Structure formats: C-alpha cells, structure tokens
Computed example of a mutant assay.
Amino acid sequence: MVNNELYNDLQLSILDFVHVHPGSNPIQSLKNSTEVVQLAERLGYKRYWFTEHHNTPSQISTSPDLLSLHAASHTKNIRVGSGGIMLPNHSPLKVVENFTLLEALYPGRIDLGIGRASGTDGLTALALQRSQEAVTSNDFPEQLNQLLSFFSRNFQAHHPFKKIIVPGNGSLVPDMYMLGSSQGGVQFAIDKGLGFVFAAHLAPRLAIPMLRFYRENFKPSIYMNEPKSMLAIGVITAETEEEANYLAGPVELMWARMETGSRDLTFPSLEEASKHVYTLQEEAAREYNKERFVIGSAANVAEKLKQLAKEALVDEMMIADFYPSQESRLKGHQLLAEAFDLKSN
C-alpha cells in the first residue's frame, strides 16, 4: 500500500495537445482549451502546458508560446507554458525573446519546457528548419547553451552573440524544464540545473529509472536550487471503471494503429473505437501500450498516480489529456481534482 500521508500534497498539472475531436474543428478546439484551463485554475491544478506538433490534422498545438499567451490572458494564477518548445525548430534567440515577453506580461506564471526532437516528420522538419543541414546537424547542445546564455546574459567575452541585447533584464526568466522520453534529456537537465519532465506516455518503462536518476544526480544552478521533476502520463478517469474504459477506447485504438504502422492516425470517435475489431497485431500493441495510460475510476486512478509518484520521486504529476470529448475532459479533470482534494480557487 502507498503511504498516502507522504503524497497528500501531490500536485497535478495538465498537458494539452489541443485535439480536434471527430466532428469538431480547430476554432472549437481552441475554445475548448480555454474552457479547460479556466476550469483547471478553479479546481487547483498547478500548471497547464501545451505541446508542439506539426502536420498533424487531429492536433493544432503548433505554437505553444502563442497558446500560453492566450491561456495566461484568460486566467489569473495558474502557471502556463510549453510542453514543450521543440528547440530544433526554432532560433534560441527568438525563443528567449518570446518567453521574456511572456514573463514580463505574466510574472511568475510562465514555464518553458524544452524538447530535443522536432515533434514532426522529416519533411515538415525540413520546412520548419529550412535546410537539410539543420535537420541532420544534431546541434541541440549548442542551441541549448545559446538559449541559456541569452537568458543569463553570460556569453563569453569573445562570443559574437555577446553584443545582442535581450529585452528587459535577467529577472525575466521563466522556470525551465527539459523534457525527456529517453535517456538523453535527463543528462541535460542534470548538467544545466534545470527541471525535468519525463513523458511516460511515450516511454513508460523508462520513466521511473530516469526520474530517480535525475533526482539523485541533480546539480544546482542559477535557474534552480533544487531538483524539480514531474511524470507525465495519459489519464482517463470517469465515474466508473466501465465508463473510463469506454472513454479510453479512441486513444487506445489510435496508439495501436501507430504501433502497427497504420497510415490512419486520426483521433477515432467513441463509436468507431467501440465497434472496431482489433487484429491480432493491433491487440498485441494495445496490450503493450497499457502502461502509457492510467485508466479507471477517480479513486483508483488517484491511487495509481500516488504510487507512480512515490516510485519516481516526484511531487507533481502531469496529466496528458487524451479524452475523446470536451464533456469527458471537463468531468475527468474535475473528478481527479476531487479525488486529490485539490484546493480550489
């Protein structure tokens, strides 16, 4: 059994992909996200992040900085940010300028989650990064060093970027986190003294060892004095186990298709998922994917999340939002907040 006393103060946050549900459209999806972040603030969730994906018709989270600006302008206290900015797609200076402005507009509420991948396919990465050399250069370490040096104004004297002036001053720095779904991101977080978030919905079997490794090896920096880590995982909860399993049908089918090489990567409807007859290959993928999600009644989901938090040495869980409808999203986040007895605003 979990010692619940240790995790009574476990914090919850939400990762929004801005899904375009079947029968909906991008305009409605953005309105839905606005409604969810406002609910999350009222319920006592800690932060609300947006992903970065491109060339994905069922998601429109292409610009987490713009979405963060929108979310911050429609809320008062909840932290907002990127989960994350896929740095290979961007100029480090431009990221610093954008997040400096966000921090100036909404002091103490902005997070910058940083990813090492492009978050898209090779052709789209080429269109974003503008040259094949950029796509294949793997210069993320240099990009990250530039980004941190722009924020801290500590380029070496001979560096040509030393002359570039970033607006404001060194106090306008968001909280920064490295994102990880493999063994690579964690070392950057440790060496640079940044927060760390592991995407268990992408690599569930690595989540606990990587998060424990981060906690045990963190090096303090000017950005963070002590380790700050989160485990992100897909969550579907409802009033009953049966309803939760029904609501999880679309995301389970979508991931089974991805695992088996299907070209149909749209977000299925509840009806389509409930009627789908899995092939043997898809069923094997579905079983393999079970660790990517926590599915069930709110009480059971809360117990499982507390167990994961204890094993991973984290005090915050980030809910990757894969609900199939706006109604189920709102209800699921509310049920989970009640199960954790979050302090509502």
Results as ranks from 00 to 15, higher is better:
Asn8Gly: 15
Ile14Trp: 06
Asp16Leu: 03
Asn25Gly: 08
His54Asn: 12
Thr56Leu: 05
Thr56Trp: 01
Ser63Gln: 10
Pro64Met: 11
Pro64Leu: 07
Leu66Pro: 06
Leu67Ala: 04
Ser68Cys: 08
Ile78Asp: 03
Gly81Thr: 02
Gly81Arg: 00
Ile85Arg: 08
His90Tyr: 15
Leu93Gly: 13
Ala104Cys: 12
Leu105Thr: 05
Ile110Glu: 01
Leu112Gln: 01
Gly113Trp: 00
Arg116Thr: 08
Gly119Cys: 06
Gly119Asp: 07
Ala125Val: 06
Ala125Thr: 11
Ser131Cys: 01
Val135Arg: 02
Val135Trp: 02
Phe150Asp: 01
Ala157Asn: 14
Ile164Thr: 14
Gly168Gln: 01
Leu172Phe: 11
Gln183Gly: 14
Val186Ile: 05
Ala189Arg: 10
Ile190Tyr: 08
Gly193Lys: 11
Gly195Trp: 01
Gly195Lys: 00
Phe198Lys: 02
His201Phe: 10
Ala203Asp: 13
Arg205Ser: 14
Glu216Ile: 04
Asn217Gln: 14
Pro220Asp: 13
Met224Cys: 09
Asn225Lys: 15
Ser229Ile: 06
Ile236Pro: 10
Gly249Phe: 03
Val251Asn: 09
Lys275Glu: 13
Tyr278Gly: 05
Tyr278Thr: 05
Arg286Cys: 02
Asn289Trp: 10
Lys290Phe: 01
Val294Pro: 12
Ala298Gln: 10
Asn300Pro: 06
Leu308Phe: 12
Met318Cys: 13
Phe322Met: 06
Phe322Cys: 14
Pro324Thr: 11
Pro324Tyr: 08
Ser325Lys: 09
Ser328His: 06
Ser328Asn: 08
Leu330Asp: 07
Lys343Leu: 07
